[in-house]
């Protein structure tokens, strides 16, 4: 269980402080995949860094499985947005993946074996001896995912992980994440600016408002599992939910009740809702 309570984070000194996050509270159950979506500058990355223990909150706290997070917790996996910067070009793919095991696992052969297993899990069995820069963007991001999975994390944080790969690769990577989650039951927090992606992968979608980042909505995404890039996205529930998230992200008001829509009974009432008079 991940609990974030009244998290506030300011940058800069008291006089010219800029609030990146204000009173953000959320709970994520074990094994849940929560998408966090919002326009740029809404503090998504700040939220992830606070949860990762990389950035101390100005006020409020993060509690992971009953323990307050004051520094980077054990069994945490992180996938950064820019794989070309977060993978080390001087290390082979295998050594990159084995890196997080330095702290926990003794002996280079053991670490390499664990790295190989992790690479196999993301479909990169044969790439271990190569260097990251010899791989395509999609493959590099797979390496970053393998590295995050290598230490057998209970919590996986992903900061716009698929922002810089092409659409087809992106869909493959989304499905990879869903598969890994189904296999290992990892809790995942995924930050994205892509609304389709947030709805497609999430059990829940949290929408943040910009400056300062606050939770605007926390929507359940009760789409059937396993999800499929084509049939899931054809479902009226999906179409409906993505419109709703889209409106929230753009800051337009929607149906009166703010959270947990009931996607079973949909279109007519929903379609009418956003065009509330006096809204624009």
């Amino acid at each position: 269980m991940l609990e974030v309570t009244d998290l506030t984070r300011a940058y800069g000194t008291a006089g010219s402080a800029h609030l990146a996050l204000k009173d953000v509270s959320l709970r994520v159950a074990d094994g849940e995949l929560v998408s966090i979506v919002g326009p740029s500058g809404c503090g998504k990355s700040t939220l992830l860094r606070c949860v990762a223990g990389l950035l101390p909150p100005t006020s409020g706290q993060v509690v992971l499985n009953g323990t307050p997070v004051t520094r980077v917790p054990g069994r945490l996996g992180v996938v950064f947005q820019d794989y070309s910067r977060s993978l080390y070009p001087w290390l082979s793919v295998r050594d990159n993946v084995a890196l997080p095991l330095r702290r926990t696992m003794r002996g280079r052969p053991a670490r390499r074996q664990a790295a190989a297993a992790s690479l196999a899990a993301v479909g990169l069995t044969d790439a271990g001896h190569r260097y990251p820069w010899q791989l395509s963007g999609g493959m590099q991001q797979r390496v970053a995912i393998a590295r995050a999975l290598a230490c057998d994390p209970v919590l996986l944080l992903m900061d716009e992980p698929f922002g810089s790969v092409d659409a087809q690769t992106r869909e493959d990577l989304e499905d990879l994440i869903l598969r890994v989650r189904a296999e290992r039951g990892i809790t995942i927090l995924l930050v994205t600016h892509d609304i389709d992606e947030s709805v497609y992968v999430g059990d829940r979608v949290i929408v943040l408002t910009p400056g300062p980042g606050q939770i605007r909505a926390d929507l359940a995404a009760p789409l059937p599992q396993p999800r499929d890039q084509i049939t899931t996205k054809e479902l009226p529930e999906f179409v409906h939910l993505r419109s709703e998230v889209s409106r929230l992200v753009r800051g337009k008001p929607l149906a009166p009740s703010d959270d947990t829509p009931a996607p079973s009974d949909d279109t007519p009432a929903r379609a009418a809702a956003p065009a509330k008079p006096g809204a624009s």
Binding site: A52, L54, V72, G74, L76, V78, F80, D82, R85, S86, Y88, W90, L91, L99, P100, R102, R103, R147, C151
Partner: peptide
């Protein structure tokens, strides 16, 4: 050294010495 590379090392809980030898020095 790219701050992302340092942050990645911190996120994977490398010690100060490990950060020095595997990230800062090669970079």
């Amino acid at each position: 050294v790219d701050p992302v590379q340092i942050q990645t090392a911190r996120a994977f809980r490398l010690s100060g010495w490990q950060r020095l030898t595997t990230v800062i020095l090669p970079s």
